[in-house]
Design a protein around this nucleic acid. Structure first.
Lengths: 345, 345
DNA sequence: TAAGTTTCTGAAAGCCCTTCCATGGAACCC
DNA sequence: GGGTTCCATGGAAGGGCTTTCAGAAACTTA
């Protein structure tokens, strides 16, 4: 590792270290002449500033950290793209922590509380333990929540209520009256919200809710937002022997893919026999031609970063909470389109 | 941000800062008594070490950076899981840079050359520009290559030659004699290697190579390792009107998914009419029931980290290159199994 | 008990930067 | 021309830690 410091540059350019620093930081208080001299030497010596010395002196690290349920859900990866691109363009670095358990979340939160390590923390979809809420809040450590909520912190969420409503109404508008729901684990707030508004929309439209046609996953891994969960829920539904609803609202694309598998194994056609609308619109939804509620994931990532930077600048600004409205993307799985579902004959 | 420093602890515990530091770093040269006193105070004050001050003093950041073709390919995300988990357990942090273009790769390489920023860089699947090779090498900056190669640096790769051979032999063993290949862009080294050994294996088995049945993608995005690329290649193949091979070796799972789509659109059944073997074994391969060459991605990530840490300890150790042998995972798309392909009736 | 060891401890130096402050010279004023 | 203002500049201080070094304390040994 080459060890060129501003002292070396100062010596070679016959100036003081203060001047070197000023030049490198584009301070206006340097004559063009001196500036040129310093720049030339810096280039010649191939100078690279020491990031941590800078961070220490500036009391700012230009690094954020993101804690996400990493590899379990493609959703986050897509949001992350928005985060990363925005950050990079602003000269920030991003440290990523993939959490697979509650303990890990706490471990990572502790890590990110280490003074100086990061300027702020982005927490994705994970519940914020109360004791950390207090700690972050008391110490004014910037924390932005994405797809999760806490009254003390800025949050960016999807409007699950509206999403569930639109999805359900879409199925109703297609003439379905017997509609089921394949849901994730009710421990997850989005699952609860989606369920509640699914029911409410049915009721509002004069359709009685049939609890038998609502399957809430009991899986804990990723709160039941998984292919396996969808597969098993639908299997269960079919195995029950009761008359199958003609349509299902499924709480995520990834579950819907499992649902499709279960249906196909039983030679139940989509959308002819059963129509499906799901939620998320991840990359996979396109591949499987799912009608789904699309969340502007990239934009959510972008906004998360923006909020974070504002929070860093103004630690005492009012806490804000933004709700993104999901939009309906009509593909084949709901039957509104003529073309058949991609994965089936 | 709470600002407890070792000075505060030293004062309260009636010791010197050196002693505090020693206690916190588990140096054995402290009496149990003093140690307890310091630990107690540290706990009471809720002390958190300042990461960057440590990094500066230790001349080590305990942070690595990974440059990956981020969101274009699920393959990397899976490798990354291995990387991240291993690193975290060792107290390292991981900065992630997703590169979407050559320029970005260079930008990120420059970033990671910033003194002190990271202890080492992991470069995934991307070609290392020669001028950076020189720079990293001259300055002994640790660099480990995964799924790419340069003689000056440690590398971890998949044995594409063996993989292509096994895949091809598998198709031959199933009785196919007219085998085509859907390949990625030949600009990519893996694409070239897979093609070469596909041809060679055919030749070795006394089967003439028919260039007409080999489609190399001309796409540049992600070097043609994409669903679209696979789709278009197969469309082209079908459109040519020539007799379709009874089997295809496809250079990646993601392309194979596009291939399946194209085939289905033309009512060509898999595996009955056309058998498919692909490469990678990403999560999606399971969903689509693809027979594919599996790469131990998690292990590759783990090993990459291990190599990196060794390199950091011993900057002058001999450069090593490890080849992982892929293994054949037989699912439905090759027709060796009775069960039908998941995505088709 | 004095000298010699060993062990522990406090303080200073160093890591590399940014920023503040004092300085000196140039430019400006009357 | 003497005094003032302005501004580029050099250098010290400071950021929080690790580590070295020398001295103090504790313990041996003769």
């Amino acid at each position: 590792m080459l060890a060129v410091t501003i002292y070396d540059i100062a010596r070679e350019a016959n100036v003081g270290i203060g001047t070197v620093s000023r030049v490198l930081n584009n301070s206006p208080k340097v004559t063009t002449q001196t500036r040129d001299r310093v720049v030339t030497v810096a280039k010649r010596l191939n100078y690279q500033p020491h990031a941590y010395a800078q961070a220490l002196a500036r009391k700012r690290s230009n690094t954020l950290c993101a804690i996400i349920p990493f590899f379990t859900n493609y959703f986050f990866i897509e949001v992350l793209q928005g985060v990363q691109e925005t950050l990079t363009s602003l000269g920030y670095d991003l440290i990523i922590h993939g959490a697979n358990s509650k303990d890990q979340v706490e471990e990572y939160l502790i890590r990110s509380m280490r003074k100086g390590r990061v300027d702020g923390t982005l927490l994705f979809s994970l519940e914020l333990p109360e004791r950390f809420a207090d700690e972050f809040s008391e110490n004014k450590m910037p924390l932005v929540l994405v797809d999760t909520f806490h009254p003390k912190f800025d949050s960016i969420r999807v409007d699950n209520a509206t999403g569930a409503k639109i999805a359900t109404e879409h199925l109703l508008s297609l003439g379905h009256t017997n509609i089921g729901m394949i849901n994730a684990n009710l421990k997850s707030a989005p699952a609860r919200e989606r369920l509640m508004n699914f029911k409410q929309t049915l009721t509002e439209n004069g359709i009685a809710v049939n609890e038998e046609n609502i399957i809430n996953s009991s899986e804990t891994r990723n709160d039941g937002f998984s292919r396996e969960s969808g597969y098993h829920s639908m299997k269960e539904c079919i195995a029950s022997g009761k008359k199958l609803p003609t349509a299902f609202f499924v709480s995520s694309d990834i579950q819907a893919i499992g649902v499709l598998a279960a249906l196909r194994e039983n030679s139940i056609r989509v959308p002819e026999d059963v129509a499906i609308v799901s939620f998320d619109d991840v990359e996979l939804a396109k591949i499987f031609d799912l009608t789904t509620m699309s969340q502007p994931m990239f934009n959510m990532g972008e906004l998360a970063v923006k909020k974070m930077l504002e929070r860093i600048e103004h630690p005492d600004a009012l806490v804000t909470s933004v709700n993104f409205k999901p939009t309906l993307v009509v593909r084949a799985s709901c039957g509104a389109n003529k073309k058949y579902v991609f994965h089936q004959q």
